[in-house]
């Protein structure tokens, strides 16, 4: 279990002001669940992910993974970034096996494991290609395979499909569900798309900016239904999907509108 307890983050802005990026966020990520953090930009969702990954220390609060406090980045938490961070000088197989290389695993074993993972993400036969020869969606598949290679306890995904076109994005969402159903990994996923959050999350936390905090939580079962029945249309057209969409939409948009109106009145 990954536990985030009362996590707060204060940044210092360039002009010396203190920015309250994350305000007492608490979160549990259980085995076999996909927790999606949803919110507009500036709501602290990337800050939360960076803290879980160990890139950013907390100002207050704690994060523990299976009881161990999280202090620095490590191979027990695999990260998939929005911008792919593949090494341009390494082949796809070497990129996937990078974490195994850091762990000192011999080359032949690395290669076998890389090919296995490339099969999992639907990239058989691309082991010897180079990243610049791949499309955006394929690169993100490599990124997912790379994050899975070290067999992490949790996968952290920072708007991984945000830069993809909508068709590729749908394919990638289904691929992620396949990977999740087959590996049983815990996933913490960040997005600003309500539909993506509803489709992927077993739990959705809605976040709101200034200061970044969690304003609502939902337990969902659309992703389990998709994993069992594989019928996208039935899920997207379900009335409860549409209701939740509207509910979350008003949650995401309301605080913004209020803040803007207030500022306009003050001016």
């Amino acid at each position: 279990m990954l536990q985030v307890r009362n996590a707060s983050v204060f940044f210092s802005a360039r002009d010396g002001r203190v920015v309250h990026a994350l305000d007492r966020a608490s979160l549990d990520i259980d085995a076999n669940s996909i927790v999606v953090a949803l919110g507009a930009s500036g709501c602290g969702k990337s800050t939360l992910l960076n803290a879980i990954a160990g890139f950013l220390p907390l100002s207050e609060g704690s994060i523990t993974l299976d009881g161990q406090p999280v202090a620095s980045p490590g191979a027990d938490r695999g990260v998939v970034f929005q911008k792919d961070t593949l090494l341009p000088w390494s082949s796809v197989a070497d990129n996937v096996a990078l974490g195994l290389r850091f762990a000192g695993i011999p080359a032949r074993e690395r290669r076998e494991r890389a090919e296995e993972l490339l099969g999992l993400v639907g990239l058989e036969g691309f082991a010897d290609a180079f990243p610049h020869e791949l499309s955006g969606g394929m690169r993100q598949r490599v990124g997912i395979a790379r994050a899975l290679a070290t067999d992490p306890k949790i996968l952290l995904m920072d708007e991984p499909f945000g830069a993809l076109d909508s068709l590729t994005r749908e394919q990638m969402q289904e691929l992620l569900i396949d990977v999740w159903a087959r590996t049983g990994k815990r996933i913490f996923f960040i997005t600003h798309s309500i539909e993506e959050a509803l489709f992927l999350g077993t739990n959705v936390v809605v976040m709101s900016p200034r200061p970044g905090r969690i304003v609502a939580r939902f337990d969902l079962d659309f992703v389990r239904r998709f994993a069992a029945e594989r019928d996208v249309r039935a899920i997207l057209s379900a009335p409860e999907f549409a209701d939740l969409y509207d509910e979350i939409r008003s949650l995401v948009h309301r605080p913004h509108a209020e803040a803007d109106v207030r500022r306009m009145v003050l001016q």
Binding site: A53, G54, F55, S72, P73, G74, A75, R77, G78, V79, F81, K83, T85, L87, L98, G99, F102, A103, R146, A147, A149, T150, L156
Partner: peptide, 12 residues
């Protein structure tokens, strides 16, 4: 990002 990616893969 490239540095963070390597650190999260367990690089010394």
């Amino acid at each position: 990002e490239r540095v963070n990616a390597a650190l999260s893969l367990g690089a010394s």
